[in-house]
Simulated scan of single mutants.
Amino acid sequence: MTTIYYVGYGAAHPGDFLYDFPEGHDFWLLILTHTPAEIWVQGSVREYPANCAVLFRPGQKIWYRACAEQFVNDWVRFDTDESYLTETTLPLGVPLPLVDPGYFSRLFQLLATEHFFQYDYRELSIDYLLRLMFHKLLEAARETDRQPDEHQLLELRKRIHNNPGFAWSVPVMAESVHLSPSYLQALYKSAFGVSCMEDVIQSRVRLAKERLLYGSQRIADIAALCGYRNVEHFSRQFRRIAGCTPRSFRSSAGAAADQK
């Protein structure tokens, strides 16, 4: 069983903020930094960049402070007898850089909502959220070959997948992450195993399949929605990815539905 004592997110502290507990607490503490911070780790104080997670076990020395005009963080204080927490292989008291800190921050917000309100499945929801959070922390701890600009690349990839119909081009993408086009292409392929423009095309085809399966729009309208000014170009790229034309895809899907 896990007991949450307090959850906070997006808390802003002044530049002279210091959190100093030499003997630690009698509960667990997990923090997520949104700004740079100085943190005591294994006998010395070092400055760490923003977007790091740090887990402190009960009784462990805790010392961190702001090293800019403001310190912003999320945190959760809890007690637990769950083995996935008490026997965790996560490094304790050591900052873990996070590729997608926004994802973690949203988990803190959801955790706070479940903690402060008496919903019917409150305890179960808290357990699920904590397990998800710690699974993601384990993934972060195992990622040792991180690209220096991977956070920016991940945000770019989210924008591509959420809006594939935008007029994406390598120069436009490079400008959005403040990288040169050639450097962006090399980093993107290394990080995700696919080129940035191929990722755009695959995202467009996924959206097209969704509209072909569950909509009644004309193929020309779907092509425009997916960012294509030319229906023939859309059809060629769709066929390369899906193995058939958009029209054949829609007809096959409709025939399969009629046989059920």
Rank of each mutant, 00 (worst) to 15 (best):
V54P: 14
V99C: 08
T113P: 11
A12I: 12
A242K: 00
H135P: 05
L98D: 11
S251C: 10
R240G: 05
A141I: 10
I222M: 06
L212S: 00
V231K: 04
G193T: 02
R206K: 15
S182E: 15
E69H: 13
E210D: 10
T80F: 07
P164Y: 05
P36C: 03
R159N: 10
A112D: 15
Y84Q: 05
P246K: 04
H115K: 14
I126E: 13
P181Y: 07
E155R: 13
V7N: 07
R247H: 10
N51G: 04
P14E: 01
L132A: 09
E139S: 09
C52V: 14
A37Q: 07
N163E: 07
L96V: 03
R131C: 07
D258T: 13
V177M: 08
E47V: 15
F238E: 09
V200M: 02
A242H: 00
L30P: 02
R46G: 11
R250M: 05
R236P: 10
F78S: 02
A186E: 13
R146Y: 00
R250A: 12
L154M: 05
I126S: 05
F116R: 15
T89Q: 15
P164D: 00
T35I: 05
K260Y: 12
V45Y: 04
P181A: 01
V54C: 12
L111G: 05
D81L: 06
F78A: 06
F56A: 03
L153F: 00
K158P: 04
G102L: 11
I160Q: 11
F234T: 09
S248H: 08
R106D: 11
Q70F: 04
L29E: 12
N230D: 14
A223L: 03
G15E: 04
F71E: 06
P95H: 07
T86P: 13
A167R: 06
G24V: 04
L179K: 09
G93N: 04
K158N: 05
I31H: 02
G59C: 10
A68Q: 14
M197F: 08
F116S: 14
L85Q: 00
T86G: 06
Q185C: 13
A257N: 09
V205E: 01
P101Y: 05
S251L: 12
E123K: 00
Y119M: 12
A66Q: 08
Y119E: 14
P36N: 01
Q118A: 10
R77H: 13
D79Y: 02
R57Y: 08
Y64A: 06
P101G: 01
E82N: 06
K209S: 06
F234I: 01
Y48I: 11
T2L: 09
H233K: 13
L212T: 02
E232Y: 11
L110T: 13
Q109M: 12
P97K: 01
Y9R: 09
Q217A: 01
V231Y: 00
F104K: 08
S83N: 07
P36E: 09
S251K: 06
L92W: 08
L55P: 12
E23K: 11
E198W: 02
L124R: 10
I39D: 08
L137V: 08
Q202V: 09
E23D: 11
Q185F: 01
